[in-house]
Amino acid sequence: MARTPLTLAALSTAAVPGLEVVATREHTTGEHGDYDAALLKTAEGRQLIIRVPRTQAAETEQAADLIALGALSGGIRSRLPFEVPTALGQAPFDGSRAVVYDFLPGKPLELERVHGEIAVAAGQAVAAIHSLPSGFVLEAGLPQQTAEDAQRAVMTVIDRAQQTGSLPAALRSRWYQAAADQSLWRFLPTVINGALSADSLLVDDTSVRAVIGWSALSIGDPARDLAWVMGAQPDAAEAVFSWYEMGRQVAPDPRLQHRALLHAELDLARWLMHGHELHDQAIIADAEAMLDTLVERVHQNGVDPLEQATSPVLDAAEVEQLLSDRPGHAEGLAPVEEDSASDENVDSQRSSSSDDE
């Protein structure tokens, strides 16, 4: 049952001692019911937000987000050209917990708005994240992934998607060939947000004001934070990547866009797996339909599997459009974690299925 704004306002005073709330209203952020949230106005005129998870996945995400925000010290935040949320307090509630944050300015970025100054700001914002020193991530005990780890993780996603029995053979082949291409995985791991999407970027007319959603903060493949860009118009995507590379001020990664495209396509596989994990036939059918659309694009374009000359298989914004407005797309899809059992099975599964995906 949804908690009312008044209930959440009362919870906020328990989470933040001395807090005086004078007004409240429901806050909807497109999180598809994963959280109950309310905007709060304090006696000093300050705006805050309180969020309470409604699902186990959201509770896990919230816990990881709090650890990440704690690792983002004042010194680290000062290196970023945008604001990052601050958790002000929390209180246990109904088997979960309510967390109060400062309310950050801006509206979630819409892909059709990725052009001009916004494209510049988006590229620079991602570059700033990837330019952070890695020490604070290591000190916080957050995950770190080598290029080889990233390659294995992608193989694991493909294998697990194959195990659902719903992955088209054309896509399995396309993705396996990309994952096995050693040149694709010659990159320098960086600090990454790990779950970045267009919705993570809060913007005004010309700039990125804030970045939210830090639950997957880690060291890993920078292309993961740029997968969402592949849903923008081609010229806009090129602008984001260009400004990103200028902001990094390091040697360009010649396969960055190819890995970003691979990650974007694998989000469809993650959505399929999410449906199977929940035993939700509606999600499964939806994911299967999206994968079929991707297969049609592969066949229509006759594109070689994610090679150097590859352009996005889908028309501009189609991957993002296919995934947008699907419950749990942003928050419900946790990164697939490697474990020893899954690693041991990867090679055997791949060899046993090499006659098919």
Rank of each mutant, 00 (worst) to 15 (best):
S96C: 04
Y176T: 03
F93M: 03
Q145I: 01
L111N: 00
S183H: 08
G141L: 12
Q182N: 04
P92V: 09
A178G: 07
V126L: 10
V154A: 08
V114S: 06
Q177M: 09
A91N: 03
A122V: 15
E112I: 15
V157S: 00
G135P: 13
V120M: 06
A150L: 08
A170V: 15
A150P: 02
I158Y: 13
V100M: 01
D181F: 10
F136R: 02
T164A: 02
L104C: 08
A170K: 12
A119P: 09
A180K: 08
W185Q: 00
G106P: 07
W175A: 06
A178F: 05
V120T: 08
R97V: 01
L109Y: 00
A125Y: 03
R113G: 06
V154Q: 00
A91S: 13
L138F: 11
Y101G: 02
E110M: 13
H115D: 07
S131M: 03
Q145N: 03
G141F: 02
G106S: 10
A180S: 12
A178I: 10
A119S: 14
L138V: 11
A170Y: 13
L111G: 01
S134F: 10
I158R: 10
V157A: 00
I158K: 03
S166W: 11
E112S: 11
Y176G: 02
D159I: 14
P92Y: 08
F136K: 07
K107I: 15
Q145M: 00
G165A: 08
L132G: 01
T164N: 10
P133T: 08
L132E: 03
S134G: 09
R172P: 05
D149V: 08
A128V: 15
P92Q: 11
Q162Y: 15
P168V: 12
A153G: 10
P168N: 09
Y176W: 09
Q163D: 09
L111A: 06
P143D: 05
W185F: 09
S134I: 15
